[in-house]
Design a protein around this nucleic acid. Structure first.
Lengths: 115, 115
DNA sequence: TTGCTTTACTTAGAACTTCTAGGTATGTTT
DNA sequence: AAACATACCTAGAAGTTCTAAGTAAAGCAA
């Protein structure tokens, strides 16, 4: 799912610049191989994110001579990251509202807190 | 987004049976009008969820004489609800992993806890 | 009793998203 | 030199989503 990929990419790039291939490796490593994003899935997402102004890419020649396109989070991307997390919180509040109705006797299913 | 609609519908039906039109009203009410799901959006989602066996629908004639299709959560739907929340937790753990890396000095962005 | 509003459900297909499956090219290891 | 890993790209098939249209019955106000 490419739509859930964007926020993860934003998070990764918030820490430090990276490039497509590395992002795929990182997602794979951090999930013990569970999240195997195909290259053909990620690259179009990166291009789209760049088109939206969330990230900016730069070609860099590394010591080996190989070219890599390094992406950085833009200010707009930082705002988008905030927006996507607000959205997450919004959905969570809705879930809690739907869960905590008069007839319900159960406790909250989940709590999402900002720290 | 229809994919985010399914878990909300599952949550609603977990509480009690309902029908399309009412589900739309409930989502609208609980979000102070922010989540206005079009009928053409919800009904196909309900049909798809029924096809997947998550919910089962029954036509009922209410006192006024009008017909409504009431949906109930099936056992499969209950499992699906659990699965979708596990998925949510999984994504959250991933987010925390991506956030809490050696070079990062910040605190957790969010914490999702089961209660 | 006519017309307007609300309730209640349906569907075709346009518009959009996603990803498979192919490709290119360079560096590294065997 | 062959095989493998790195690194990126894209057409278009396949799938999803939702707009915009429709049907029809009940309630209500004029």
């Amino acid at each position: 799912m490419a739509s859930s990929l964007a926020p993860l990419v934003l998070l990764i790039l918030k820490r430090q610049e990276s490039y497509g291939y590395q992002i795929i490796q990182e997602l794979k490593d951090k999930t013990e191989g569970e999240l195997q994003v195909a290259e053909g899935t990620l690259y179009p997402v990166l291009k789209k994110m760049e088109a939206k102004g969330w990230i900016s890419g730069d070609w860099k020649k590394v010591e080996s001579g190989r070219e890599r396109r390094y992406y950085n989070l833009t200010d707009k991307g930082r705002h988008e990251l905030d927006a996507q997390f607000s959205q997450l919180n919004y959905i969570n509040e809705l879930i809690n509202k739907l869960w905590n109705l008069p007839t319900s006797t159960s406790t909250n299913p989940f709590k999402l807190t900002s720290m």
